[in-house]
């Protein structure tokens, strides 16, 4: 038995459970399928195309886990602003 373990308090298993649960639920709640993701990307760029000029296949979008929440990252290289805006 490790002598030091007598003095360091073990972390509570309930805290471990809560942390694991929070992470797993974040993943579950944002379990978006590829098709919906493509649809979202298409619809989003439709709106953006009214304002900016850009090529559709230069757009990249992804969901990234940042700490305890998901962040939607969109990389859209923009050209000019559309003149009518």
């Amino acid at each position: 038995m490790d002598f030091r373990s007598l003095f360091t308090r073990k972390s509570k298993t309930s805290d471990i459970a809560t942390q694991r649960l929070k992470l797993v639920l974040t993943q579950d709640r944002f379990d978006i399928n590829e098709e919906s993701m493509k649809k979202l990307q298409f619809e989003l760029t439709q709106v953006l195309a009214k304002y900016f000029q850009f090529t559709m296949n230069s757009v990249s979008m992804s969901l990234k886990l940042d700490g305890n929440s998901y962040v939607l990252m969109a990389d859209i290289p923009c050209g000019r602003i559309n003149p009518e805006q």
Partner: peptide, 16 residues
Amino acid sequence: LVRKGNMISKNDVLDI
């Protein structure tokens, strides 16, 4: 078990 830290508490469940 909640007091001993071996069961998720009511508040944590509600929070989640």
